[in-house]
Each structure stands twice: as structure tokens, then as C-alpha cells.
Amino acid sequence: MRSVFDQLDRYMDEPTKQMILALIKKKQKYENYARQSFRWQMSALACALLFCLFLAGKGIGHNGIVTEVLNDSIYLLLIMAAAFAYSAAYYFKKKEEKAEGEFHKLRCEIIQKSTDLWPYPKEWKSREAIFKLMKQQYDINLYFESK
């Protein structure tokens, strides 16, 4: 990551470079939370499906479904695993939403302050190279504020 920006030193001053690097870190943090959230959601779904499969495979006894579930420890284990996975997914989803908000806020700030960050016409041309690099390598759109 640093080697790319070492080449672009002539296009940015140090504060601008720090803002761009912070934006990349926030994007990576957001994507990490999104992956974690998705993994835990799929784990919760898998546990719930396994519970249903075990329940359908064993069939409902003459005592009823509640007694059947409470008497067999595999059902309780699957219910607890699904509840834990759902809780973890919920936790990471909240973290993902917060990280996305921070990322979007900084991205919009860079877009709004681009005239201050690259004030001269010569620097304004180099801005295009930086924006293109951010779009191609990191999938960060600095052209428009909308998501």
C-alpha cells in the first residue's frame, strides 16, 4: 500500500496522503466487518437448518415437539449454537454499519475538500490520477458522494 503512494508523493502533500491512507484503512475495516457478519449469518442459518433436519429426521414423537427437543441434548446444542451465531452476526452487523458510516463520512469529506486539497490547476490534474488509482485498486469512488 505504501509503495503505491510513495510514487504519488509528488501529487499529494502529507496531510492529504494521511487522509487517503485513513480512508483505505476504514474501507478495509468495513469490509472485514462485512465478511465477519456474513460468516456468522451463514453459521446461524446452517445451525437452524441442521436443527430442522434433525427434527424432521427423528420425527415428532407421541410426546410432542417440545418434549422431544428438551429431552435430546443435540437439539439444545443446535439451538444454543444458532443463538450464539445469530448474536455474533448481530454484533458484527452493528460494527459493519458503524464502520461503513465512518468510511462514507471520510470519503465525502475528501470529495468536498478536494478543491482545498488540490488547489492549483497542475495539482488538480494529478487529482485525477489519485482518484483513478483509488477506484481501480481499492474500489473507492472519490468522484461522487452517493454510495
Rank of each mutant, 00 (worst) to 15 (best):
Y30Q: 09
E123W: 00
M42A: 13
Q136W: 04
V66E: 15
F38I: 06
L142Q: 02
S3R: 02
L77C: 15
S87W: 12
M42G: 08
R107Q: 03
A85D: 05
I79D: 01
D9L: 03
Y33Q: 12
K25C: 08
Y143Q: 11
F51M: 04
N32G: 07
D6N: 08
R39H: 13
Y120S: 14
F84L: 13
D116V: 10
K147H: 11
L106S: 05
K17H: 01
Y138V: 00
A48G: 08
Y75A: 02
E145V: 09
W40F: 15
A82R: 05
Q28Y: 03
K94M: 09
Y120R: 15
I74E: 12
L50R: 12
V69T: 08
L55C: 07
W118D: 06
K113M: 07
M12S: 03
K95I: 02
T16Y: 02
F103Q: 01
S37H: 07
C108L: 06
L77E: 13
P121Y: 07
R35F: 10
V69W: 02
I24D: 03
M80Y: 14
W40E: 09
R2K: 11
F51Y: 15
V4F: 00
N71L: 14
Q7N: 06
S126N: 08
T16V: 09
I110N: 07
C108Q: 10
Y90M: 09
K147W: 10
Q36T: 07
D6I: 02
P119D: 05
S3F: 10
F38Y: 11
K58L: 14
R35S: 10
L23H: 05
F51H: 10
I60T: 14
L142F: 12
W40V: 04
L133M: 05
L50W: 04
F38D: 11
D139A: 13
L76W: 10
L45C: 12
M12K: 02
I60M: 07
I24N: 04
S43F: 12
L76N: 15
N63T: 15
N63R: 14
Y143V: 09
L77H: 07
K27I: 00
L77G: 08
K58N: 15
I110F: 05
K29G: 00
K135N: 05
F5I: 03
L45Q: 15
L49S: 12
A129Q: 06
F38T: 05
C47H: 06
A88G: 04
F54Y: 14
H62T: 13
L133Q: 02
N71W: 10
E96L: 00
L70I: 07
E100C: 06
Y11I: 03
D116N: 13
I60H: 04
G64E: 09
W118G: 01
N63S: 13
I111V: 03
Y11E: 04
L21S: 07
